[in-house]
Amino acid sequence: MEEMKVKTEGEGRESEEKVKIMEAEIAELKKTTVDRDRAEISVESDELSSSQRFQGLMEVSGRSNLIKNLKKGQGRFNEQ
């Protein structure tokens, strides 16, 4: 009877240790996932910023070309 009690207690301690190890692994995986998600959000944010900057440059370039064409058109109109 005593041997069974000792064996059961030993198995219980082993199970508790395994649970603690698994909990530590889960916590580490959660941390890794959060870090990865933050990195992805940062990259997406950077890409969006680059895209927005590019679009802004295109709009400025388009406006500049429009102004140049209007000025050319006015010069021709004034010459006639």
Rank of each mutant, 00 (worst) to 15 (best):
M1K: 13
M1P: 03
E2T: 10
E2H: 14
E2R: 15
E2Y: 14
E3N: 09
E3R: 12
K5R: 01
K5Y: 04
V6G: 00
V6C: 00
V6W: 03
K7C: 01
K7W: 06
K7Y: 10
T8I: 07
T8C: 06
T8M: 08
T8E: 11
G10K: 15
G10H: 11
G10Q: 12
G10W: 08
E11V: 01
E11Y: 05
E11R: 03
G12N: 14
G12A: 15
R13Q: 11
E14V: 05
E17P: 00
K18R: 09
K18D: 00
V19Y: 06
V19L: 08
V19W: 09
I21G: 01
I21L: 11
I21Q: 12
M22G: 06
I26E: 10
A27S: 06
E28M: 08
K30Y: 02
K30M: 02
K31N: 09
T33M: 10
T33Y: 13
V34I: 07
D35N: 14
D35I: 06
R36L: 13
R36H: 15
D37P: 00
D37I: 04
D37N: 10
R38F: 13
R38L: 13
R38K: 15
R38N: 15
A39Q: 12
A39P: 01
E40V: 14
I41T: 07
I41Q: 08
S42Y: 06
V43I: 13
V43G: 02
E44H: 13
E44D: 12
E44N: 15
E44G: 05
S45E: 13
D46N: 06
D46E: 15
D46G: 05
D46Q: 14
E47P: 04
E47H: 12
L48Q: 10
L48P: 07
L48F: 09
S49D: 09
S50A: 01
S50E: 06
S50I: 00
S50P: 00
R53E: 04
R53H: 07
R53C: 02
R53M: 03
R53P: 01
F54L: 12
F54I: 10
F54D: 08
F54Q: 15
Q55A: 10
Q55N: 10
Q55F: 09
Q55R: 11
G56Q: 08
G56S: 06
M58T: 09
E59Y: 02
V60L: 11
S61C: 02
S61P: 01
G62F: 03
G62Q: 05
R63F: 00
S64R: 05
N65S: 05
N65E: 05
N65W: 03
L66R: 08
L66P: 01
L66T: 07
I67P: 01
I67M: 02
I67F: 04
K68I: 00
N69D: 07
N69V: 01
L70F: 02
L70C: 03
L70R: 05
K71T: 01
K71M: 08
K72F: 00
K72T: 01
K72A: 00
G73N: 11
G73F: 10
G73P: 02
Q74Y: 11
Q74S: 06
Q74W: 13
G75Y: 14
F77A: 05
F77N: 07
N78F: 11
E79A: 04
E79H: 08
E79Q: 06
Q80P: 05
Q80G: 13
